[in-house]
Design a protein around this nucleic acid. Structure first.
Length: 161
DNA sequence: GCCAACGTTGGC
DNA sequence: GCCAACGTTGGC
């Protein structure tokens, strides 16, 4: 049976807090603390070996910094059970976890960081959610075509990732 | 179920 | 720091 097709995603992160370079240093990281239901549902749709664009938000400039790989499907976000965490959620129980997280590993930094400004000017990105007005989701799907265009302009070949 | 108030996100 | 957009909360 053929492996299910890879899916592609975009993960936002503030580089002052945790950027692509931090992911490379860490080697692997739990992508936790997502507290938006739509974003959570996308996390839950991720499969092992899916690829994620790591997008730096609240940065100067903001833009796509690298590609990460999903190591395994989503599991309950441990922070929701930790009263000391800002991501604690008293409504969550181990039986009924409300929030999810995935484990990701760095795959490749973009040889050319891709600022948001430049993304807006690129052909072939119509419908990319990141570029839609008022889009604030921190986890969102990216079509295979959009993924290929973005990494290509950033200096990577999608087929080799 | 409606909707106003409030909080958060994120570009600039 | 400003502000637009969006999500959540809670009174009714």
């Amino acid at each position: 049976m053929p492996a299910p097709a890879r899916s592609y995603w975009l993960l936002k992160s503030e580089p002052e807090v945790f950027g692509y370079a931090d992911l490379e240093r860490a080697g692997t990281e739990a992508w936790n603390g997502v507290r938006n239901y739509q974003a959570r549902n996308f996390l839950r749709a991720m499969k092992a070996d899916d690829l994620c664009l790591i997008y730096h938000s609240q940065a100067r400039p903001s833009g796509v910094a690298g590609v990460a790989r999903v190591l395994r499907a989503a599991v309950p976000d441990t922070l929701q059970f930790d009263p000391a965490s800002p991501y604690f959620d008293a409504r969550s129980t181990p039986d009924q976890p409300r929030w999810s997280m995935v484990e990701v590993a760095p795959l490749a930094a973009l040889p050319r960081f891709l600022p948001l400004d430049e993304l807006r000017g690129l052909a072939g990105l119509d419908g990319l959610r990141l570029l839609q007005k008022g889009s604030r989701l921190s986890v969102m799907p990216v079509s295979p075509e959009h993924f290929r265009v973005i990494v290509a302009v950033g200096g990577l070949e999608a087929e080799r990732l």
